[in-house]
């Protein structure tokens, strides 16, 4: 195996995801330590026309095939395995996203390579790759080391600056043959389904009242709605509320929901799982109410209270009217 760092490019509808540039920036920093260079695995159809956006890399390994236009865990997985065989990287960086999770774990088994997942940081320490995983809902971090000749790390989106990897250039393009059976796979992409239009666009509101599991039942939602209306804001939520169908998907903040950046984010009964934090950490003022004083949300909030929200919220609404 070599010393190069391979970044797996993620793209949707012909555009590279921010996380691709986040990984490229980090890869450029680490390449100094491994003495290798940065390369990209670019799997898609026609995407190599956009390779100049990947100027932070010295080389792009392109698997280009019309059947690879849209992400497919099976065929993109085999294509990535082919690139790794070809490129023999020291370290493969994959985004810990919906697409990246599929690629990283399947590559780990297919090529018998170590995988360190949910990484917040990656370092090179002598002959070891060291990565810090965010586990147990963000309550525990684990620093893992691997001296394997080739290691995969899946990195959480949003932990490294994207600007560091956003450089135009002209990386060398090396074509890698697409694997067989792409057009006749057991998993067949059908279509992208756009989110349904909602009643309220939570990304456009300055003030958001967010509810989580702590709200207890659908019957308690009016508490949050009254507060939001007293503030001239809107109600949004963490994932469990949407899974329970108490609020529509368009109100969900977080990794698989929307990213919001309001002036005020009032989090009621939200523990602050990493997937939620990803969607709201850039709010200007975060106030969190949760009876669990160890809830991770308090790490990200500016102000916090462990008062029972059922006492606090009515009192607050009254004061704001």
């Amino acid at each position: 195996m070599g010393q190069d760092i391979l970044v797996v490019a993620e793209h949707l509808k012909g555009e590279f995801a921010d996380v691709t540039f986040e990984l490229l920036g980090k890869a450029a920093e680490l390449a100094g330590a491994t003495g290798g260079s940065v390369s990209v695995a670019l799997i898609g159809s026609g995407m190599k026309d956009k390779a100049q956006e990947l100027g932070a890399a010295a080389k792009v390994y392109s698997v280009d095939h019309t059947g690879l236009a849209d992400f497919n865990p099976l065929t993109h997985g085999s294509a990535l395995a082919a690139v790794v065989d070809h490129a023999a990287p020291r370290l493969t960086l994959v985004a810990n996203t919906s697409m990246g999770m599929d690629l990283a774990a399947s590559l780990s088994v297919a090529k018998d390579l170590p995988l360190i997942a949910y990484a917040l940081d990656v370092q090179v320490d002598g002959d070891a790759i060291v990565a810090t995983s965010q586990l147990y809902g963000g309550k525990i971090y684990a620093e893992s080391a691997s001296t394997g000749a080739s290691v995969i790390v899946s990195v959480l989106a949003g932990v490294f600056p994207a600007d560091a990897g956003r450089t135009n250039g002209s990386p060398a393009i090396e074509d890698v043959a697409a694997p067989d059976g792409i057009d006749d796979a057991q998993v067949r992409f059908q279509a992208l389904v756009e989110p349904e239009g909602g009643d309220v666009d939570i990304t456009q509101h300055d003030i958001l009242v967010a509810v989580g599991r702590g709200i207890g039942s659908e019957d308690n939602l009016p508490l949050a709605e009254e507060l939001a209306s007293a503030l001239g804001g809107a109600v949004c939520s963490s994932r469990p509320i949407v899974d329970s169908k108490w609020l529509p998907k368009t109100r969900q903040v977080g990794k698989s929901g929307l990213k919001v950046k309001p002036k005020v984010y009032l989090a009621l009964g939200i523990s602050g799982a990493p997937e939620h934090i990803e969607g709201m950490k850039d709010a200007e003022l975060i106030i969190a109410v949760n009876t669990d004083e160890t809830a991770p949300i308090f790490e990200f909030a500016h102000y916090g209270s462990t008062e029972d929200l059922f006492d606090l919220v009515p009192a607050l609404t009254e004061k704001l009217k």
Binding site: V187, R188, A191, L192, P195, K249, Q252, S256
Partner: peptide, 16 residues
């Protein structure tokens, strides 16, 4: 037929 979730409420539909 399954739906795989991406961020922002986008989903991809697959036949398996």
């Amino acid at each position: 037929t399954v739906h795989k979730e991406y961020s922002g409420g986008m989903m991809a539909r697959y036949e398996v």
